[in-house]
Computed example of a mutant assay.
Amino acid sequence: MGWDIKPSGVRGVLIKTSTAAEGFEKAGNVLKTALPDAATHAGTVSMGGGGGGGGGEGAGTGPIGGALAELMTSHDQRLAFIGARTGASIKGAMDATTAYVNGNLEQAATAQQEALKEPKIDLPGAGQK
């Protein structure tokens, strides 16, 4: 089986993948800020129909705030995993392509060295009188 990898094509795909991964990272960072803010502003449930919102000092966390905190906790590890997996995949593809290119360069250098060697000529009857 032959390989026909175009390093420039791989580079283009890796650039697009890195750009998309940056978008995921930005979205994850927004979630890390937005969800706690939303939890703070969700307020609490209080007896007598009082709002309990506002999220001032010492305000309790109501059921919505608690649910949002649990959501972030459950997704925090997943978001970190996605980032780490994406980074490792990009690096792996880059390393594999580099090895492929280096292997081709080594093969070319070996072929060139073989071509430059002094030829051995073995003619029939050479050296006989």
Results as ranks from 00 to 15, higher is better:
residue 22 E to R: 13
residue 88 A to N: 02
residue 114 E to M: 11
residue 47 M to G: 10
residue 125 G to C: 05
residue 86 T to P: 08
residue 40 T to P: 02
residue 52 G to Q: 04
residue 110 T to M: 13
residue 51 G to K: 03
residue 31 L to M: 15
residue 89 S to H: 11
residue 121 I to K: 14
residue 30 V to F: 06
residue 106 E to Q: 15
residue 67 A to P: 04
residue 108 A to F: 10
residue 63 P to K: 06
residue 7 P to M: 00
residue 26 K to A: 07
residue 40 T to K: 11
residue 76 D to H: 09
residue 96 A to E: 04
residue 124 P to K: 13
residue 91 K to N: 12
residue 58 G to D: 02
residue 23 G to E: 14
residue 21 A to L: 15
residue 61 T to S: 09
residue 33 T to P: 12
residue 42 A to D: 02
residue 81 F to E: 15
residue 90 I to N: 00
residue 40 T to I: 05
residue 44 T to Q: 08
residue 117 K to T: 04
residue 103 G to A: 04
residue 69 A to P: 01
residue 77 Q to V: 01
residue 84 A to D: 09
residue 34 A to N: 10
residue 116 L to V: 07
residue 111 A to L: 13
residue 107 Q to C: 08
residue 44 T to F: 08
residue 61 T to Y: 03
residue 49 G to D: 03
residue 109 A to Y: 14
residue 104 N to P: 04
residue 106 E to Y: 09
residue 102 N to V: 13
residue 122 D to S: 14
residue 47 M to K: 11
residue 79 L to I: 03
residue 43 G to M: 02
residue 60 G to E: 06
residue 53 G to A: 10
residue 75 H to C: 04
residue 29 N to P: 04
residue 78 R to H: 13
residue 21 A to N: 06
residue 84 A to M: 02
residue 125 G to Q: 05
residue 59 A to P: 00
residue 128 Q to N: 09
residue 48 G to T: 03
residue 67 A to I: 00
residue 114 E to Y: 14
residue 39 A to L: 06
residue 64 I to Q: 10
residue 82 I to F: 11
residue 51 G to F: 04
residue 3 W to R: 11
residue 113 Q to C: 10
residue 9 G to I: 00
residue 65 G to N: 06
residue 34 A to K: 13
residue 50 G to E: 00
residue 118 E to R: 13
residue 92 G to F: 05
residue 118 E to V: 04
residue 114 E to D: 13
residue 112 Q to W: 13
residue 116 L to G: 05
residue 95 D to Q: 06
residue 23 G to R: 15
residue 106 E to L: 15
residue 41 H to R: 05
residue 55 G to E: 01
residue 3 W to P: 04
residue 30 V to A: 09
residue 31 L to K: 14
residue 58 G to N: 11
residue 60 G to V: 00
residue 102 N to S: 14
residue 35 L to C: 05
